[in-house]
Amino acid sequence: MSTDTTTEAVSATRRIEAPRESVFAVLADPASHAAIDGTGWVREALDAQPITEVGQIFGMGMFHSNHPDGDYRMHNRVEVLEPPRTIAWQPGQYGPDGEIGYGGWSWRYDLVEDGPGATQVTLRYDWSAVPPFLREHIAFPPFGEEHLRRSLDNLAALV
């Protein structure tokens, strides 16, 4: 695990004993994200379609005891999609005006072949674009280092 205070990001890397295409297929399926998530906040996919293009929005049912409503929904916009190498999204929420607002943080997975049938997976959480008014209410990162490692372990178990 590494923290880069210049870019305000954390990342973790793990070798997974599976081909890169198999790992990418799990990441591109929102239905698998609850099982991957190392915090337990992600509860269910709201959209059954796999991730197939940049700009696609996929919704997730969430729960966090410190969230004002407990249960809430995030609607993630796919920012990078380069099968089977990279997938990244930026979480957002619909506002009262019906538009999605994004908080300035993102999730990114980079996959590199690591010998026959194995993949090095780097998970990166970046909060460098979070505006000051949100930083007054949310501490970044909002979870400990173990979250990224646990997420990668969960991903390895799914593949």
Results as ranks from 00 to 15, higher is better:
77 R>F: 10
139 A>N: 13
34 A>L: 02
141 P>Y: 09
75 H>I: 00
44 E>C: 07
54 V>F: 01
128 S>Q: 10
154 N>P: 02
130 V>W: 01
82 E>L: 05
83 P>L: 02
124 R>A: 10
142 P>G: 14
69 D>F: 11
106 S>R: 14
66 N>D: 15
84 P>N: 09
3 T>N: 08
124 R>I: 12
43 R>G: 13
56 Q>H: 04
93 Q>S: 13
5 T>L: 10
11 S>Y: 00
32 S>Y: 05
59 G>D: 04
118 A>G: 10
150 R>G: 06
136 E>M: 15
99 E>A: 15
152 L>W: 01
68 P>T: 12
93 Q>G: 11
8 E>W: 05
16 I>W: 01
104 G>I: 01
111 L>E: 06
143 F>E: 04
13 T>E: 02
125 Y>K: 00
147 H>Y: 08
67 H>A: 13
109 Y>P: 00
9 A>H: 04
47 D>Y: 02
121 V>M: 07
89 W>D: 03
32 S>D: 05
133 F>E: 09
6 T>V: 12
146 E>S: 13
142 P>R: 09
88 A>C: 01
157 A>I: 06
40 G>F: 04
1 M>F: 11
104 G>N: 11
144 G>V: 03
153 D>G: 11
115 G>F: 04
107 W>T: 12
148 L>F: 02
38 G>A: 09
156 A>Q: 12
89 W>V: 05
112 V>H: 12
18 A>T: 08
81 L>G: 07
75 H>K: 07
98 G>S: 07
71 D>L: 08
77 R>T: 14
4 D>S: 10
127 W>P: 01
63 F>D: 01
152 L>F: 04
98 G>C: 03
83 P>T: 10
142 P>C: 09
73 R>E: 15
129 A>N: 09
158 L>E: 05
72 Y>M: 03
74 M>I: 11
135 R>Y: 11
